[in-house]
């Protein structure tokens, strides 16, 4: 009989580390939410005032602000356009890599990591310098953010689509569809897309998180998006600004969870190997 070596149970130090980490990560969120929704100065906060004067007034004031709505709409329009551009460019790329040129996958994947190598600030400086002489009208338009954001989202979007496509038997599906006489666009829309809906929604969600969180490029190109509005309104209505930050965080967290959920369903063995871009 083989001896079974019993796994030791979780040691104390591990719980200590995890507890400290939990405090470090949860406390700032609680502090922000308290500041946003409670009208009690920190100095007066105590056992007696803990439940006093919780209010949504700051946030309501912000929604009434005439500058808020245009910023929200701009961010939403840019989200939609960025999603469209991303799908238009990345879906064919991912398909091409999966069907025609699997050997080029690692090359394409490395190329999509460009935003990790070129910081957003350098990206906007370079592109700004180039376009200022070539096509000055481009930078004047609010929609010039769309290609930048599509590039920033590339590491997430390509991986998500690629994982989705790898998890299905793409070649067989396409060959079957073609041999039944379907032209390529029909194959794409009626065979491939319905098979990777979870990867597609994941891609869309991740793109929206990028658009709703991006500040650097919008601020350098002076485009009044939602994050920019949030930063500027901190002076006028700090409670509203922090309330908006809480809302945006909650929304992006939800989108992110939904995206990873969907991706996990699409491909079991997927792990995120490369991380973030604050």
């Amino acid at each position: 009989m083989a001896t079974v070596i019993s796994r030791s149970k979780t040691p104390l130090w591990a719980w200590v580390v995890i507890t400290l980490a939990a405090i470090f990560f949860i406390l700032p969120m609680l502090a922000m939410a308290r500041f946003a929704f409670q009208r009690v100065p920190v100095a007066l906060l105590g056992r007696n005032t803990l439940f006093d004067r919780w209010t949504l007034d700051g946030l309501v004031d912000m929604f009434r602000d005439p500058d808020f709505r245009p910023a929200l709409w701009l961010s939403l329009r840019i989200s939609v356009l960025t999603v469209a551009l991303t799908l238009l460019v990345m879906l064919p790329t991912a398909l091409w890599v999966n069907v025609q040129a699997p050997r080029l996958r690692s090359m394409v994947e490395t190329a999509t990591l460009l935003p990790y190598v070129v910081p957003p600030i350098a990206l906007v400086v370079g592109a700004g310098g180039a376009f200022r002489n070539l096509a000055p009208w481009f930078l004047r338009s609010d929609y010039c953010l769309v290609p930048f954001y599509a590039v920033l989202a590339m590491p997430f979007t390509f991986r998500s689509l690629d994982t989705g496509l790898r998890s299905i038997d793409l070649k067989t599906l396409i060959e079957a569809s073609r041999s039944l006489g379907a032209p390529m666009p029909t194959t794409l829309l009626r065979i491939v897309v319905p098979n990777i809906t979870s990867a597609l929604s994941g891609t869309i969600f991740l793109t929206i998180t990028v658009v709703l969180g991006e500040f650097t490029i919008a601020s350098l190109l002076l485009k009044p998006t939602l994050p920019l509005y949030m930063s500027y309104s901190q002076g006028r209505n700090p409670q509203g600004a922090l309330g908006l930050a809480v809302l945006l965080l909650a929304l992006t967290t939800l989108l992110f969870f939904a995206a990873t959920r969907l991706r996990r369903r699409g491909a079991e063995r997927y792990t995120i190997r490369i991380g973030a871009m604050p």
Partner: peptide, 14 residues
């Protein structure tokens, strides 16, 4: 993936 303005706000409040 968190960063930017909300993170700064959270720590200012903390």
């Amino acid at each position: 993936n968190l960063g930017g303005i909300p993170l700064a706000f959270a720590f200012l409040a903390t």
